[in-house]
Design a protein around this nucleic acid. Sequence first.
DNA 1: GTGAAAGCGCTAACAT
DNA 2: ATGTTAGCGCTTTCAC
Lengths: 342, 342
Amino acid sequence: MTTAKDVAARLGVSVSTVGRALSDDPRISAETKVRVVQAAEAMGYVANQAARMMRGASSDIVGVVVPDISNGFYATIAHALSETLARNRHHLMLGETADDPSAELRQVRGFVAAGVAGAIVVPTARPAPDTVRLLSGMPHVQLLRNVAALSPQWFGIDDDRSLRTATEHLTGLGHRRIAFVGGTADLPTGAARQRGYREALAATGLAVDPSLLEIGPPSSVQHGRDAVGRLLDGADPPTGIVTASVQATRGVLEALLERGTDVPGEVSVVGFGDEAGWSWWGPGLTTVTLPVEHLATACALWLLDRLSRPAGDTAPFTSTSPGVLTVRGSTGPPSHRPRSAQ
Amino acid sequence: MTTAKDVAARLGVSVSTVGRALSDDPRISAETKVRVVQAAEAMGYVANQAARMMRGASSDIVGVVVPDISNGFYATIAHALSETLARNRHHLMLGETADDPSAELRQVRGFVAAGVAGAIVVPTARPAPDTVRLLSGMPHVQLLRNVAALSPQWFGIDDDRSLRTATEHLTGLGHRRIAFVGGTADLPTGAARQRGYREALAATGLAVDPSLLEIGPPSSVQHGRDAVGRLLDGADPPTGIVTASVQATRGVLEALLERGTDVPGEVSVVGFGDEAGWSWWGPGLTTVTLPVEHLATACALWLLDRLSRPAGDTAPFTSTSPGVLTVRGSTGPPSHRPRSAQ
DNA sequence: GTGAAAGCGCTAACAT
DNA sequence: ATGTTAGCGCTTTCAC
């Protein structure tokens, strides 16, 4: 690996001259600068970041933690982050947690060891104390999920409003038995989405029927699948379903397709997020489209800005963007089948 | 930040004693070890990784370069890599190239600067000379794509056979006008896939009709969309289409849906890869399912093994896995519409 | 305008 | 069994 010393030797100058020329120091003559830059280029010189960091410089690496990169939702986010970071001459270290706090801790430990400049985190429901401590030692932002133990900087979806929008779409169509399929209230996102659902029902004077509340683990396709079975095979099935996570939506869609359920004839469905293929699922999925790319980009830009500032500049900051309802074919008025109750 | 020096000073021993005690050196007395370990713990000492790396220690970071992480295909790969690396106590630095050699170079420069232990690369068609040189300086493997300039270690799909399988499925059903929609032969993968298509046609004694060859940029959804228009609006449209990349498939599916084309009545389609939702696209997409996860896992394991070996152990190694045909509803016998030619 | 030298924190070869 | 010293590659005084 070529070092500054090698470049200096080749040109018959000192290492300090090389260093200064490459950092565009005003004291170096234009001619020398050109010579040095060309030689460095020709020799494939890349400054050793470890050596720089020993001199107190912070790296140009930003750590990013997501639950699961194979989830299209997080893949989109990672892409937006990666692009924004790259455009600003930064690099990305990626860690997956699978929603496991100990995996999260391992990843954050890796960030510290690598000396990342900062971190962007989609945290697990309850990060380990060590995770919290390590993250406190570096600039970081929370993305999507917001846990109180971490920094008060957060970029997220307006989860409450998104689910209210979804649910109101169904109440507006005349539905009165609307099921909710989503994650636990452990996660602030889960709690907010449930709240939106409840608010929308309350606004129409509807009570929440506990048998229509299908609460499962954070990001579980399986839970979505199982919920469909329980709901539609129940004594008094819903005429509408709102889902509250991308994975739950996925499961619900798959299960409905397998059962050959008539959508929206037998049941209307409003999804959460908009993944590849959802527009051509059955009659086309009516869904709450989330501005994930903008969100991720804004988040990355905020962190980059934060990194360029002197330390300690940490005013609480929160940014939420609402989802937008995209109406396709999976929702319609409830059918009036004979019903014992009601 | 407490350093080994601080710990040494507190205990009145030398820095080397501290270093040795913490690395469990057999020459240090048990009693001293305990004292040092306790003091280090109490003072919150964490070894400076940058300093270690300057001493030649390699990091536990593996660089991964993919064209585009928002592409579900690569997201799946990144997930498999991340999981395998994490299980082996390694971390992942992710770079996207967007198939641009200069972006690729920037990412690889980042890897070098960060002192990654090795790299897993899905290379662009023509990596920059600098990219090649930098990668030569570290253990690396090619994934999916295989360019001659880089190391002879490669894990990929048997592209030739996969496309032959896809094409033979259509010839077997009686199709004689089969279009190919895929990327240029610039990329070895593109070339091999075209070859498979040609071989399958040749096996049935069919000539390649240049007007049915829709060759476009590497990973372009748009090209897939445009190709459908040109093919179906042409004078003598095909009765079958095989696609040769995930993105091309995506484009073809979208375009067919928009046109409202009858599949497989008007045209049969065999896809490449199997993304979320393809099973419920129209009549269900018949496609060549690729063993990407196994491939990525094997690739990561190989690199990890390579990293644990003494340097120079670099026998050429190639592993290819074939795709498997999954038959769904998008393929059937050609319909016999009146035709001027033939 | 440029060179020489110190030092960041660590480890390993070389003393005791 | 422990201490001393050199040096990794870089930046940054301090000299000239």
